[in-house]
């Protein structure tokens, strides 16, 4: 009766084994929905490029940034169009002081605005982004509201 059976299902073990061969992965794990790849910032673009070219993960569905107290984590959720059953989430972690992640605009054009949003709200700077300006907040806004240390004013 389980309703949300859009899990990765069978073939996950093989997928894990094959993904281990991919260069540049620090850590690999999975739950019932995604295979998670922990990637170092310096190798993000090359991993993404090989996921796109060799694995057919041509659809960057979501890009979101999470604030863990001393680090930021940027999560990329990848799918394929047409669907090939693989669901891969790539994660990178950067320290608070040096919140810089390479931009993926050249690999996935759809990252453009999503990176701008992460920059706007979380203050992560995406190096190599062609037009990294605020997208949702006004240009003269100071601070990045989704950071946990952002001071809220009623």
């Amino acid at each position: 009766m389980t309703s949300h059976d859009n899990s990765i299902g069978v073939g996950a073990a093989e997928l894990m084994a094959a993904l281990r061969q991919l260069a540049g992965i620090d850590e690999i794990s999975q739950d019932e929905f995604f295979v998670y790849l922990q990637v170092d910032v310096s190798r993000l673009v090359s991993v993404m490029r090989s996921l796109l070219n060799d694995w057919g993960m041509n659809y960057l569905a979501n890009l979101s940034a999470v604030d863990y107290d001393s680090e930021f984590e940027v999560v990329y959720h990848l799918y394929a169009i047409p669907d090939n059953g693989k669901k891969i989430a790539v994660k990178v972690r950067v320290p608070h002081q040096q919140a810089q992640v390479p931009s993926l605009v050249t690999v996935f054009p759809t990252a453009d605005w999503q990176e701008r949003e992460a920059f706007d709200l979380m203050g992560i700077s995406f190096s190599g982004h062609p037009n990294l300006v605020r997208i949702l907040l006004p240009d003269d806004f100071s601070g990045h509201p989704l950071r946990k240390d952002f001071r809220k004013e009623a």
């Binding site: 041509n58 659809y59 799918y79 169009i81 669907d83 996935f108 054009p109 759809t110």
Partner: peptide, 23 residues
């Protein structure tokens, strides 16, 4: 696909990708 356009806009471009069907 490259720009991550989804929904009816993607299907109008001839890609039969509907999450209700694919996933």
């Amino acid at each position: 696909i490259a720009y991550g356009i989804t929904g009816p806009n993607l299907r109008a471009s001839g890609v039969a990708y509907d999450i209700r069907r694919e996933d």
